[in-house]
């Protein structure tokens, strides 16, 4: 289907320069090549997606009446979607997710870019060690990282709070209302900055050196080189990592679910994914969870396409 649609265009491109070079009967080869990807797409993505959509139109309903009637799987139409769209708590959780994204993504991208540029600057020392050190948190599972940070946040277990108390300063509880977004964003940035930094740094290393030589001859400072040469070159990498970061922020789950057991600030439907988990695995309503998932997936899809379209037009131009 969609996959095969790209084939003719790709062929046209490669076949364009030598006109009508060989016009053979259609070969099976392209289909064989695209086969693994198509099979993967169908089995791993399409089938479960269709099953999820199927589930979202069904529900467990009591039949036979009575206080102890038995639940049966029935078709319920758009009931689950209606519940999804009329649940004020789900809407509120979407709002919280956006607040979190607006805080987390710029900090993550900004610090990754800054670190990459600093590491790339000719005067920095201990590059290898620093790079590894910044990348290391990425290798730590999110739950473990969140637990560790949770212990650092909790006033009674945190060494920071202990030290502050010794010198007579009362630190605020970062797991309280307001600061909790920062507390979660901090964990995500700590875990993700190394990964994004490596992508940007690798991309920086591939910029041909003559650009810098030319700029220096023209009298550019390192700062100007970074601004006028490195960042424009980095744009594809920035779009890629930015995209990952946005999707990551919209899927925020492991940090809040881990911290939730440590504070009353994060309740069980704080973010959309938590609400979906609760519906499916605590309230035994897989069907509602499926409807919520479909809605959320569509939302992220639309958002991703918008982000991609805008950034493609701005940075990659039509020629690439």
């Amino acid at each position: 289907m969609t996959l095969t649609a790209q084939r003719p265009r790709a062929q046209q491109k490669s076949a364009a320069p030598p006109p009508a070079r060989r016009r053979r009967r259609p070969s099976l080869v392209p289909y064989v090549f695209v086969g693994p990807a198509a099979a993967f797409f169908v089995v791993i993505i399409l089938v479960p997606l269709i099953y999820a959509i199927y589930l979202s139109f069904r529900g467990q309903r009591i039949s036979g009446g009575g206080a102890f009637g038995r639940k049966q799987d029935v078709f319920v139409g758009f009931e689950n979607y209606l519940t999804t769209f009329t649940d004020p708590e789900l809407l509120a959780s979407l709002g919280r997710m956006l607040v979190y994204s607006v805080i987390m993504v710029p900090i993550l991208m900004g610090s990754a870019l800054l670190l990459a540029l600093l590491l790339d600057s000719p005067r920095s020392a201990l590059k290898g060690t620093t790079r590894t050190a910044i990348f290391m948190p990425y290798a730590i599972p999110g739950v473990v990282g969140s637990l560790m940070w949770g212990f650092l946040y909790l006033p009674s277990t945190s060494p920071m709070h202990w030290i502050a108390k010794q010198i007579g300063v009362e630190l605020p509880n970062v797991l309280g209302q307001g600061l909790v977004y920062g507390a979660m964003a901090n964990i995500a940035v700590w875990g993700g900055v190394g990964f994004n930094m490596i992508i940007m740094y690798t991309s920086l290393r591939s910029i041909p050196a003559e650009n810098f030589d030319a700029a220096r001859i023209d009298g550019c400072t390192e700062l100007q080189i970074a601004w006028h040469i490195k960042i424009p070159f980095l744009m594809p990498a920035l779009v890629l990592t930015g995209m990952f970061s946005v999707i990551g922020a919209l899927q925020v789950y492991s940090e809040p679910i881990t911290l939730a057991s440590m504070t009353t600030t994060i309740h069980s439907t704080f973010f959309p994914l938590m609400a979906i988990y609760k519906a499916a695995f605590q309230n035994d309503n897989l069907n509602l969870a499926a409807a919520m998932s479909v809605v959320l997936a569509l939302g992220i899809l639309v958002l991703s396409i918008i982000v991609l379209r805008i950034s493609q037009r701005k940075t990659l131009g039509e020629g690439r």
Binding site: I45, A52, Q251, L286, S293, V294, A297, I300
Partner: peptide, 13 residues
């Protein structure tokens, strides 16, 4: 993009 977002749905269902 589709793949990425669909993966969410799968993980959830």
């Amino acid at each position: 993009a589709v793949a990425g977002t669909a993966a969410v749905a799968i993980a959830l269902t």
